[in-house]
Design a protein around this nucleic acid. Structure first.
Length: 441
RNA sequence: GACCCUAUCGUCCAGUGGCCUAGGACAUCGCCCUUUCACGGCGAGAACACGGGUUCGAAUCCCGUUAGGGUCGCCA
């Protein structure tokens, strides 16, 4: 049996986690989990100016939100630490000495450069196949700086050293690194180390094909956290960007993706990000997830809106609108009137229903009929309303609309009878009476 | 400019020489369901970038063109 695979996600703390970076992390994580290997988080914080604790926190938050747990790394420990490049100075120094003494380096204006071996370099990519790069002369491939005059390190060098030291077996990264790979391979060779297998995944672009940058809609993982998305939905959507289960299914559990994931079938074309489809996947998840999970995800949004909601009745309220929600951020607005008797009346709705000739009369009739009721369930409420309408006589809608506006203040909302059932008899009758008093002549 | 990657509906994917008059999903439009708003159901329009080969046969293989993306830093 072969030794377990080891993969890593090595972001630089820039203050935000790009959705493309999240997808790279996801693919590494999927590959590691599929092969029952290890997934490692390494923070590439060599650029001291840009690094802040907050910027690192954004990475943790994003990965944790997507539930991409790491086996080694900050907070997780491991035998190959430290997991911050800023703390690995001694290791780099050691490798630097080795390159220096083997004659691979030369000094140029205070900086140290790595001398490329002149010839062809072959990259055998897990996704792109075999690619040959020409390092024939300095014009085509200038030597590479690996250490600045101030002693600090350049990405290409520390990245390779860390992958060697951390015994990384597979590097899945963005296609923007494809051209860097032959350079990295040269460092491995100079160090006498066996390089990992590489797999370059295409970049994620904006819907219009342009490069997705920080400011673009949907570019940062934070925007999903703050936009009312279910993490499992975003993760599912991300899985589908460049990979598919091949059987036309689109909503699938992460367990299933883990078991079916492979690199051989990863698409090589850059994927255009379609937020509308991401929204659809999110709605699918929200609609079909268990009530317990839905409540858990909705709770912070209710709290943020100042709605004190709890107790067993909450789930009944949430269930009324669960099938309609696309973003969790909509939840408070949809259910707010359940949690206060001081709900506002939509002026337009009032005009169209309550102020309509006979509107209040019918509301009064319905109030009378309902107050006589023993049972208080949707079926009974519906039957009673329809009987009342038949006796009037008029169409049920003539009763339905005033009842809805009286009970909720609006013309749009959940199924009327279920809404009244959840509200309960005392509150419904009180709301009807209050409405009659307020808008009555 | 040089080098590299890529090229199927607007978008994401399926398709690895015959099963393709190209399939699914999102989006769009229409119809149905319906007390509102949604969900859902049914249906429509919508693509193999172009030109050469190879082959009995090509969306699938090869070459070229074009287009898009990437890289060419003392950024990562």
């Amino acid at each position: 049996m072969s030794s377990p695979v080891r993969l890593r996600f090595a972001p630089s703390p820039t203050g935000y986690l790009h959705v493309g970076g999240a997808r790279t992390a996801l693919f590494n994580w999927l590959y590691a989990r599929h092969h029952r290997g290890r997934f490692i988080l390494r923070i590439e914080d060599t650029d001291k100016e840009r690094n802040t604790a907050a910027a690192v926190q954004v990475i943790y938050d994003g990965l944790r939100w997507l539930d991409l747990n790491w086996d080694e790394g900050p907070d997780a420990g491991g035998d190959h630490g430290p997991y911050f490049q800023s703390e690995r100075e001694a290791i780099y120094e050691r490798y630097f000495q080795r390159l220096q003494s083997s004659g691979h380096l030369y000094e140029d204006a205070g900086a140290w450069r790595f001398r490329f071996h002149r010839g062809e370099v072959k990259v055998d990519d897990l996704i792109c196949g075999e690619i040959v790069f020409d390092f024939g002369n300095v014009e085509i491939a200038p030597d590479m700086t690996i250490r600045r005059p101030d002693g600090s390190w350049i990405f290409h060098f520390v990245n390779v050293v860390d992958d060697i030291e951390m015994q990384i077996t597979h590097v899945i990264r963005g296609e923007d690194h494809l051209s860097n790979t032959p350079k990295h391979l040269q460092i491995y060779e100079a160090l006498g180390a066996t390089p990992p297998r590489f797999g370059h995944i295409p970049l994620i672009l904006n819907k219009d094909g342009s490069k997705m940058s920080k400011r673009d809609q949907g570019a940062s993982v934070t925007s999903y956290i703050e936009g009312g998305y279910a993490p499992e939905a975003v993760r599912n959507y991300l899985c589908l960007l460049g990979w598919s289960p091949k059987d036309d299914r689109e909503v699938l559990s992460i367990e299933e993706v883990v078991s079916r994931f492979d690199l051989a079938h990863v698409h090589r074309k850059g994927a255009h990000f379609d937020l509308a489809k991401c929204d659809w996947v999110n709605a699918q998840y929200l609609q079909h997830m268990p009530m317990k999970r839905y409540r858990e995800l909705a709770a912070p949004w209710l709290a943020k809106a100042g709605i004190e909601a709890g107790g067993p009745g909450l789930e009944a309220v949430l269930a009324l609108e669960k099938m309609k929600v696309t973003h969790l951020s909509e939840v408070p607005g949809r259910v707010s009137f359940f949690f206060t008797e001081d709900y506002p009346y939509d002026p337009e709705a009032v005009e169209k229903t309550l102020r309509k000739p006979g509107g209040l009369d019918r509301l009064a009739q319905l109030a009378a009929a309902y107050s006589a009721l023993e049972a208080w369930d949707a079926a009974t409420l519906e039957a009673t309303l329809k009987e009342t309408a038949a006796a009037a006589p008029c169409k049920p809608a003539e009763f339905i609309h005033p009842a809805r506006v009286a009970a909720s203040g609006r013309s749009i909302g959940p199924s009327l009878y279920h809404m009244l059932e959840v509200l309960g008899k005392p509150r419904v009758l009180a709301r009807f009476q209050r409405t009659l008093a307020r808008f009555g002549a």
